[in-house]
Design a binder for these strands. Sequence first.
DNA 1: AAAAAACGAGTTTTT
DNA 2: CTCGTTTTTT
Length: 850
Amino acid sequence: MLAFDARITTLVAMIDSSDDIPFFGDSEPVKRPSGLAARAMAARNQSAPAPDYLIGLNPEQRQAVVTTEGPLLVLAGAGTGKTRVLTTRIAHILATGLAFPSQILAVTFTNKAAREMKERVGMLVGGAVEGMPWLGTFHSIGVKLLRRHAELVGLRSDFTILDTDDVVRLIKQLIQAEGLDDKRWPARQFAQMIDGWKNKGLAPHEIPEGDARAFANGKGRELYEAYQNRLKTLNACDFGDLLCHPIRMLRANPDVLAEYHRKFKYLLVDEYQDTNTAQYMWLRLLAQRPQSKEPGQRGGSVNVCCVGDDDQSIYGWRGAEVDNILRFDKDFPGATIIRLERNYRSTEHILGAAGHLIAHNEGRLGKTLFTEQSDPEHEKVQVHAAWDSEEEARAVGETIEQLQRPDANGRRHNLNDMAILVRASFQMREFEDRFVTMGLNYRVIGGPRFYERQEIRDAMAYFRAVCQPADDLAFERIVNVPKRGLGDATIRQLHDYARARDIPMIAAARDLVETEELKPKARKSLRDVVEGFTRWSAALENTPHTELAERILEESGYTEMWQNDKSAEAPGRLENLKELIRSMDFYESMRGFLEHVALVMDAEQNEDMDAVSIMTLHSAKGLEFETVFLPGWEEGLFPHQRSLDEGGRSGLEEERRLAYVGLTRAKKRAHLWFVSNRRIHGLWQSTIPSRFLDELPEAHVEVAEAEMSYGGYNRFGGGSSGFSAGRQNPYGASRFDNPEIFASTYETPGWKRAQANRTDATSRNWGSRSGHQVERVGYGESGPRGVRTIEGELVAKSTTDTPSAFSIGDRVFHMKFGNGNVAAIEGNKLTIDFDKAGQKRVLDGFVTPV
DNA sequence: AAAAAACGAGTTTTT
DNA sequence: CTCGTTTTTT
């Protein structure tokens, strides 16, 4: 601490003696006002009051903020105020005049994180900073670098950015051009391979021989090369190139690199545990400047601050290297490491459970979160059992309804504060179905994103082809959308003509319609298209871009296509197109819009509605909720079998981190669920509870039978949190392989039932649903293994075979969806075409005949 | 060229 | 089972 203070003091002295202290604003150094100087001084002087932005930070957070010099790793556990530290740190650097906004490079992974950081820095600094030009995602900063130096990697600065869809189509063409069978060698798979190589920063000549041979009869390398060449001619980049090109460019041009070394005084990286090798190399290049005599910059090392949490690294499967964060102090010798372990989010039980679970991982830097919010009133983490996923969904739905009811104090739980976090997206379906029948508002986070929808991509392809006549991929996408009678044959012809002359396809089309080579019908259609593009391109400069966009969609017949489409989705698609054009308003030009959309592939959700969120565990990272439901804690699903098969031990550890992430999203309540039977690929499979449940500490967990409407459970098992005394420490690694040890960690009905299922019926399939109308399940009065007996089928379940009172075509009314016609009936489940809400499946009890 | 039928695959996702 | 894709049919 002393050394630290001494260093700071020198620094302050240095700053104070300087005449042109950088302050807010980018170009003109401004003399720092004395009031601020005092504040800055105060930040470092313990006797004086701290500047207001430091108030409320705990000592570790504060240290992370003010340790501006030298490499710093902030290990920020879940809910420990990571973003606050990052933003305050930036504010601090700015406020104390250590750097201009333009001299700080701050990278995040998602646009959302970048946006949030910008906003929060703005708030802290009082909006005096005109944005930070170098705060953004790795990719957006990569683009920025590339636009400036495109020619150094053989591109023009107006290059286009291709998304996955374009890439796959392009690769498919290449595979076909090579004369390979595109079914045996799927383009999508090769696209992933390329992505994998680029994540590692590997150029075609650098990829491992084995990889190169693995695809297309050993033509992998060739294809990769061909792909890169094709990109170059298209003047395009894929996402991987946005990382790889800058690396190559900076390596090959030391003068350019030196320029950025001079420029960036401070580097900040968010979510460091998620960086892949390419991002790491990129960062190293910028961070490791040569020995420097400039004051404030110590030779060789740099003021790089990485923030992350090794326990939350859940993206290994897409190239993230946890090792980057584990290795930090070796990469940056003399690095300061600060741990943020004081958690402000969750109760002691949630932290206790999560902490105990994650402690089963090896290869971690080790943190233990603690909280001061301890209260006997706090609910323990609850583990619930259900027969199958339908029951699981129903029980969760009921719990949600209960929580939503006003409590004794008249307070009610907002739906917005609840989330269901699933391992795999197919699990969502069941919850959606259930919530629809219940009339419970929900929102699905993460599904297909706005800009990935077909209609949006089509529209964008039109815009791209207008702005970038060389964008063959865009042109090809829409040349026959709407259908214009330009089929494969015509396209092939266009292709060949264009390739032979090395001109874009639009130009080829323009030429071809003047010849006799095309069939008259195709020729006329193509001429119309070409004329359209000529017109629109001409209008590009002198027409407001939103107006032009509308015109393009109108004149091309695209809007009309959807207007004539009678399917249920058509109106929604038209609405999306309107939304697209509306959103263009925020941009200066169509080009500006396209540039932005290529990188910012998200659209904000409707936040006004009070609704339960349903999302995958992966998309939940960084979020928090009062109450979190975690269904599907079963072996094979969570941990997922595939992770185990492909990732082995580290795969398991990543799954465990995922469980950790899930638990730590909860502030007050975490409800874990496992079911005994789950339908996988259409077959009913008997399942066993996740090993992660066994890894939870009994002190913070209670195994509860669900508060099901049919009641009658609590008479079993003598209390819901009884644990067997004999197995206090069941955490040896061997238990994973030894089924016996699974037998009874918890002495509760649900648990025992699960164990019974496991031993009785591990491989039994329930071929049909008729075998399990189980609403009421009893247990042989705690036999040694808790044998399951089915006492009866007392309560009618929603899936009975009782014929419905409705018939197809009946006019019905539903509380939530209004009027509609019955389209199909299965048992008492009705498929109804609602006049307003579209097609939904509901239970007959929820509708009345009109 | 468009509609119907057969086929096959099926964690997690950002840019 | 259920979705998306490819192949076959008209």
